[in-house]
Design a binder for these strands. Structure first.
Length: 266
DNA sequence: TAGGGATGGGTAA
DNA sequence: TACCCCTCCCTAA
């Protein structure tokens, strides 16, 4: 679920529903009780997405509410009249503007003072989904790394917002060997990776899913089944050439790639 | 119905 | 590198 596209989608959807409204905020689970106390009754002004991080800004409050979904975090929302009771795991509940939102499982759901916000943003690389992103910053960081390009794409300090699925899909679309050192990637190749990242993540925001394969006759992209939606991630056969997709651990995460299209792999 | 993964990341060593 | 946290869903029985 949560790579950068999920976060940007959530920021837009939630801003549309909640921004400008005073929110009733609670923490049924209790683990974010301090957040609930700080913002309950305040007007939500805006929601800012940075990579996989969200910052909620409330009127009259210097601190921001920082949410990071991690691997397990999830938002659910409903029109107020159809909203279920919170579960035992509901970390935060927002209500206002006719809607209810539940957050569960997040790695982070905390108040950050302005200095902590600065520190957070300082350790993130540019986010391809943001208009203010400067890819040359990512390039300067990436070109110095000897780690495999597949691993460096997951480093949020280099590019913010890419996760395990998109790193596989971006490299596959670019035909780049994930195992080659980042330092061996040319400026031109990097430019292509950045552009593909932008396109794939933007499509993910629009379609609300990771879909990197084109539409098929009679089947728009939004209706592609899981087995058709990606080129290599989670697939047994490559969506490009039909050859076998390989899976190997790359550091702590499983890399999916097509040796025929991308090369690589001992 | 139990259990293994999973689109993450921080920390310690 | 290893371990920890966090929750849900799909799969295999």
């Amino acid at each position: 679920m949560p790579e950068g596209h999920t976060i940007h989608r959530a920021a837009r959807d939630q801003a549309q529903r909640f921004a400008g409204h005073a929110l009733a905020v609670s923490s049924p689970q209790g683990r974010a009780a301090d957040v609930a106390i700080a913002v309950d009754g305040r007007v939500l002004e805006r929601i800012e997405p940075y990579g996989k991080h969200l910052l909620y800004r409330f009127a009259g409050l210097a601190e921001a509410v920082h949410v990071h979904l991690g691997l397990f975090g999830r938002f659910r929302s409903w029109p107020a009249e159809r909203a279920p009771e919170p579960r035992a795991t509901t970390r935060l509940r927002f209500a206002g503007g006719g809607y209810v939102l539940h957050l569960s499982g997040a790695t982070a759901s905390e108040l950050l003072d302005p200095m902590a916000v600065d520190a957070l943003l300082a350790r993130l690389g540019p986010d391809p989904l943001r208009d203010d992103a400067d890819p040359s910053v990512a390039w300067e960081r990436l070109r110095r790394r000897r780690a495999p390009i597949g691993a460096v794409l997951l480093d949020q300090a280099v590019i913010a917002g890419i996760g395990n699925a998109y790193r596989a899909e971006i490299l596959a679309a670019a035909g780049v060997d994930p195992w080659q050192p980042a330092s061996a990637v040319s400026r031109e190749e990097f430019g292509r990776l950045w552009e593909i990242a932008r396109e794939q993540l933007s499509d993910g925001v629009r379609l609300r899913r990771i879909i990197t394969m084109p539409a098929q006759p009679g089947r728009p992209r939004s209706r592609l089944r899981r087995a058709e939606a990606t080129r290599v991630y989670g697939q047994r056969r490559c969506g490009g050439c039909g050859g076998p997709v390989r899976r190997e651990p790359m550091g702590p995460r499983t890399l999916h790639w097509c040796p025929a299209c991308q090369g690589g792999g001992a």
